[in-house]
Amino acid sequence: MYPGQTGTMEAPAAESAFEPEEANLVRARDGDTQAFAMLVRTHQRSVFSLALRLLRVPEESQELAQDVFLQLHRNLGRIESARHLHFWLRRTVSHRAIDRLRRRAREPFDAVESVPEIEMPHVDADPILERNLYQSVVELPPMARAVVLLRYQEDLDPTEIATMLELPINTVKSHLKRSLALLRWRCRALQDGESP
C-alpha cells in the first residue's frame, strides 16, 4: 500500500506531475533500457541524497543508490505507476540505509570536515546558516534524520512519511517537532558562537 494507491489522496494536479514518467515506466517494463536510464536520471538525485545524508559516507551512498536502482530494475514488473515508483524508491533507499545504520555496531560520529560539502548555488541564501543546518540534520539520530529528510528534502507530508517508514503518524509528528526544536536551538547556538 502506498499513498494515493486508491486514487483518493492525490489532487489531479499532483497526479499530472507524474504523467511524463508513466510512458518511460511502461517502456522500461517492456525492456527498453533507454527508458529505464531516463527513470534513473529523474530519481538519482533524490535517491543518492537520501542515502548520503543517512549513511554520511559518499562511496557507500553511491553503492547503495546504485543497488536500489538495480533492485528497481529486477522489480519493474511490480511497479504499478509513476507515483508508485516515486514512493517505492524513497521507501527502499530509506529502509536499506536505516538497516545499514542498525547493522553498524555504533555509528561513528563524523567530524564536521568529513561530512560531505553541499552545493551553494543560491544567491539569497545564508551559506553559514545552510551549512549549520545541514550539519545539524546529518547529526540527528537515524530515524529522526530520515523523517526530516523525507519532509524537507522530498517534501512529503507526515502521512506519506508514516506510510513509507512504517511508523505511527504521531511518531512522525513527534520526530518533526523535536528535530525542529533541536535544529533551531543548535543553529542559534552555532550562530552565537560564530559572532565576534
Binding site: 541524497s49 545564508d126 524537507y152
Partner: peptide, 11 residues
C-alpha cells in the same frame, strides 16, 4: 532554510 539546505545533490 531547511528545504534550501537539503536540496538534493547530484551523484
Amino acid at each position: 532554510e531547511l528545504r534550501r539546505a537539503l536540496r538534493p545533490q547530484d551523484p
